[in-house]
Design a protein around this nucleic acid. Structure first.
Lengths: 97, 97
DNA sequence: CACGATATATCGTATGTCCGATATATAAGG
DNA sequence: CCTTATATATCGGACATACGATATATCGTG
């Protein structure tokens, strides 16, 4: 999708790590939190492949209870997110100052 | 490229609009400003197609002087950037608080 | 003018993000 | 049970970003 003349796609995995650094959540909860920020809710075909990839990379882990899977950051995920946040601030921090 | 476990590609056009909202610049100058922030300098094959696309969309305009082309925001580009920045802050503003 | 450095440009290729469509499993209610 | 809603999952396709390679034009210096 195109926002305001320039594409804003990207940073989905980063935003997921950010949200999970606040508290564990399942896929639907993450999608709703992202909707609050982006205005549009990422669809199933977007959020679940992203969660799968983060799991396979060992940055998050999921615990299945009934029909939901609650995800949380692994130790490696917390470390990764700290570094990613530092990089993000260096790149884009001056846009918010 | 992969940074810290999650990809940070994206927002190139947005970052270009931001830099041009500060002052007019040519392609190489933009690449160097982006290098300061991202750590790596976008290559010619990345920055020039992006500038071309922004030009074709009427968000920036270029003025050729010798071998350099100085780009600046058009009226439409300034408006676009304001909206994009508002959206960006809504999406990611809470990561810096 | 010859030469290297700088600046712009384009092509082919790769990848992450994203959606629409589709499918499955579980929970909840009648 | 049966139906509906919720949650998860996967596939095909589209697109911006991004690089390496290559090419051209201009500037600066000797």
């Amino acid at each position: 999708m195109r926002y305001h003349g320039c594409d804003m796609r990207g940073l989905l995995s980063f935003q997921i790590l950010f949200l999970l650094s606040k508290r564990p959540m399942h896929g639907e909860g993450l999608a709703k939190e992202i909707e609050k920020r982006r205005g549009e809710k990422p669809k199933a075909g977007t959020i679940y492949p992203a969660l799968k990839e983060l799991s396979e990379n060992g940055l998050i882990k999921g615990e299945k209870k009934g029909k939901t899977i609650t995800y949380s950051l692994t130790k490696e995920g917390r470390e990764s997110f700290r570094n990613a946040l530092r990089y993000f601030v260096k790149c884009f921090g001056d846009m918010l100052g």
